[in-house]
């Protein structure tokens, strides 16, 4: 089985004058692996996640997800690939506040035909969304027909997890998903997330600067060891 993620000789620089960039020599993630990526702000977290998600493409190098080099895909193919294979959880404000909870979950199937089939297609996707939400500790009565805005922050993060997990993605990337939660809720959230990741068979790459969570992960890495920030003058290699 190929690695879920393999980055090799990647260098990327944002367009524009700031010239902030990132270089990754080699970085891999095994299937089902749960990685905690520690990094202070300004260390290029967002840039790394944008590269892996295929929002931007590197100027040089290879970013393989399940054997597909997304660096060689066109922008719209990268978008489609992300829809099919990735789940994303943000730090906060994950949901469209005016949409219902279930619609927010199902949103991640809108641009992914295969993933939608995996989630049960038109007939089963709603049930699958409800199943995930229930598994993540959101009672049916709490979810039915409610708008996402009426949920607490912790509940919203769990809805975001359900959205990232529906349709069994191969990789979930999460950008400090627990930072808005208190300690107890952080643990509870991670437990639920991990058990669903196992069911879905997905790997997790979670960025945080909270090292106390480290024990629960398969591997902990420091972003500064993986990626080198390119300053304005330095040319991408």
């Amino acid at each position: 089985m190929p690695d879920v993620l393999e980055m090799a000789n990647v260098s990327f620089r944002w367009p524009g004058r700031s010239g902030f960039g990132l270089a990754v020599e080699r970085f891999t993630l095994k299937p089902r692996e749960k990685l905690l990526l520690i990094g202070p702000s300004g260390s290029g977290k967002s840039t790394l996640l944008s590269l892996i998600a295929g929002i931007v493409a590197p100027q040089t190098g290879r970013i393989s997800i399940l054997g597909t080099d997304i660096a060689r895909l066109s922008a719209s193919h990268r978008d489609r690939f992300r829809a099919e294979h990735l789940g994303v959880i943000f730090q906060m404000f994950n949901l469209l506040p005016y949409g219902t909870v279930v619609d927010n979950v199902l949103l991640s199937l809108s641009f992914a035909k295969e993933r939608r089939k995996r989630a049960g297609g038109q007939t089963g996707e709603r049930q699958e969304a409800m199943r995930l939400l229930t598994r993540l500790g959101l009672e049916q009565t709490l979810v039915e027909g409610r708008s996402a805005a009426s949920l607490s922050v912790g509940q919203q993060q769990r809805v975001a997890a359900a959205r990232a997990l529906i349709g069994r993605p191969d990789l979930v990337i999460a950008d400090e998903p627990t930072s808005a939660l208190d300690r107890n809720r952080q643990i509870a959230f991670l437990d639920l997330l991990f058990s669903e990741l196992d069911i879905a068979g997905a790997a997790l790459m979670m960025v945080s600067h909270d090292e106390t969570l480290a024990s629960r992960f398969d591997r902990v890495a420091n972003l500064t060891e993986i990626a080198r920030v390119l300053s304005g003058e330095e040319a991408p290699t």
Partner: peptide, 16 residues
């Protein structure tokens, strides 16, 4: 912009 970032994260193209 939040709405747009969420849409992008689930695979929406800028053209969408």
């Amino acid at each position: 912009r939040r709405e747009m970032a969420i849409l992008r994260s689930v695979g929406a193209r800028p053209s969408t």
